[in-house]
């Protein structure tokens, strides 16, 4: 009987109207399609890539796009297309893993702060405000410069810059949820706070967090590329999009293909995630749900 009462007062799972709204949103499909394409390219890079991305060939250095080298070659004679395809792996991996860490740590902090409240809440949110006062790129730059640039350290650096927004996003709805009847009911039934946060609060605010995650993954890819361009990327000769632009920048007057193709790759990846995040947000926000 009590179980029945609780399940009745629980808000209905939001996934079905969201999915329905997404299905009607043409923008969303554009984002999903582009993203799927990039993910597939990253996974199958070794199969699709026409050449070894690290293989140098001095005879073919700086050759413009041609039938043999669709996107041309760089100053070491390496195939730009193959390097782009492999570069997708680095960008996506760093973007995904850093946001995953930021999401888990940030939402946990936000839910705890919102649920516990009081001094703990003030301290956590105080730290969050300070983190937000560092410009993302500069904080990432600072951490990467201090730790030394490597695949793992870049993930840590970017995760640090993106933890605070997740805490903010998770906290507000937690406070609202805390006052709802089904949470009260769970508490009076003697569930532990951890159980209530995990089973009753987290599922209900998950959609908000996922929207933010897709938008911040766009930002993470942008930050990674920017750091690589500044010289704080995964070390060469590994192919990264930002690093390719950095190397190509010296030859920008004579070899446009070295910067244009990686630029478009970064733009495409960030745009895909932004479109998807926007569409997800529209789908979740009841105010805009009816409009496609």
């Amino acid at each position: 009987m009590t179980d029945f009462a609780i399940s009745q007062s629980m808000p209905a799972r939001q996934s079905s109207p969201v999915l329905r709204a997404l299905r009607r949103n043409r923008f969303a499909w554009l984002g999903i399609g582009l993203l799927a394409l990039i993910v597939l390219v990253a996974i199958f890079a070794p199969i699709i890539a026409p050449y070894d991305p690290l293989k140098q060939n001095i005879l073919h250095r700086l050759s413009p796009p041609s039938a043999d080298f669709w996107f041309g070659t760089d100053s070491y004679g390496r195939d730009v297309l193959s390097r782009l395809l492999y570069g997708a792996r680095i960008s996506l991996a760093i973007g995904f893993l850093s946001v995953l860490i930021a999401m888990v740590v940030g939402s946990a902090l936000g839910i705890l702060a919102g649920y516990i409240g009081g001094v703990f809440d003030q301290i956590v949110m105080g730290i969050v405000d300070v983190m937000l006062s560092f410009p993302t790129l500069l904080l990432g730059l600072m951490v990467a410069a201090m730790l030394g640039a490597s695949f793992e350290n870049l993930i840590i650096a970017i995760a640090i810059t993106e933890t605070a927004p997740f805490a903010r996003v998770a906290r507000a709805p937690t406070i609202a949820m805390k006052r709802r009847d089904f949470v009260e009911a769970g508490r009076s039934l003697g569930y532990t706070p951890l159980h209530i946060m995990r089973v009753h609060i987290l599922p209900n605010i998950l959609s908000d967090i996922v929207v933010v995650a897709s938008l911040w993954m766009a930002s993470a890819i942008r930050t990674e590329a920017s750091l690589a361009f500044i010289g704080l990327g995964v070390l060469p000769p590994t192919a990264t999009w930002g690093g390719m632009i950095r190397e190509g920048f010296d030859n920008i007057l004579s070899a446009w293909w070295l910067v244009v193709f990686p630029s478009l790759a970064i733009l495409l990846a960030v745009l895909a995630l932004n479109i998807l995040g926007d569409a997800l947000r529209d789908a979740i926000d009841p105010k805009t749900r009816s409009q496609g």
């Binding site: 766009a218 942008r222 590329a225 920017s226 361009f229 632009i245 920048f249 920008i252 910067v259 630029s263 970064i266 733009l267 960030v270 745009l271 932004n274």
Partner: peptide, 9 residues
């Protein structure tokens, strides 16, 4: 979606 340096270049 443009990182500042990409649009700049």
């Amino acid at each position: 979606s443009f990182p500042g340096f990409v649009s700049g270049i």
